[in-house]
Amino acid sequence: MGKYVVSPATHPTDCGRFRASFSVRRAQGNDSQRREFRFETTFASREAARLFAVTQGWLQACMPTHPGC
């Protein structure tokens, strides 16, 4: 069974709003995999974008195909 590390991030847009993204890294023995997810939706605040990224990352890491959740 591997462990998952979710790293949320926010990115300012040119119009003063924020976009959300996150990466999920899984390490199992000597093998590791990383996937990045970026969203087009914009948010009025950095905190709103961060909360969205954290929630989406948690959902991705706990999908039924991932053992251990």
Score class of each variant (00 low, 15 high):
Ser32Val: 04
Pro8Ile: 07
Ser21Asp: 07
His66Thr: 03
Gln56Asp: 05
Tyr4Arg: 15
Trp58Arg: 13
Gly29Lys: 06
Leu51Phe: 04
Ala49Phe: 05
His11Phe: 09
Gly2Cys: 11
Arg25His: 05
Thr55Asp: 07
Gln28Met: 10
Arg34Met: 13
Ser23Leu: 00
Phe39Ala: 06
Asn30Pro: 06
Ser21Pro: 08
Asp14Gln: 07
Ser7Trp: 07
Phe37Thr: 04
Arg38Asn: 05
Arg46Ser: 07
Gln60Val: 10
Trp58His: 14
Ser45Tyr: 11
Arg50Asn: 02
Asn30Tyr: 00
Ser7Asp: 11
Phe39Arg: 08
Phe22Val: 04
Gly29Asp: 05
Thr55Leu: 04
Ser45Cys: 13
Met1Arg: 05
Glu47Val: 14
Asp14Ile: 00
Lys3Trp: 02
Pro67Thr: 10
Phe22Glu: 05
Gly57Ala: 06
Gln28Glu: 12
Gly57Arg: 00
Thr55Gln: 12
Trp58Lys: 14
Ala49Asp: 06
Phe37Ser: 01
Arg19Lys: 15
Cys62Gly: 08
Cys69Thr: 07
Ala9Met: 02
Gly2Asn: 12
Gly68Ser: 06
Thr65Gln: 13
Val6Leu: 02
Pro8Gly: 06
Phe39Cys: 01
Asn30Thr: 05
Ser21Ile: 00
Ala9Arg: 01
Phe43Trp: 10
Ser21Trp: 07
Ala61Val: 08
Glu47Gly: 08
Ala44Ser: 12
Phe39Gln: 05
Ala27Asp: 12
Pro67Cys: 08
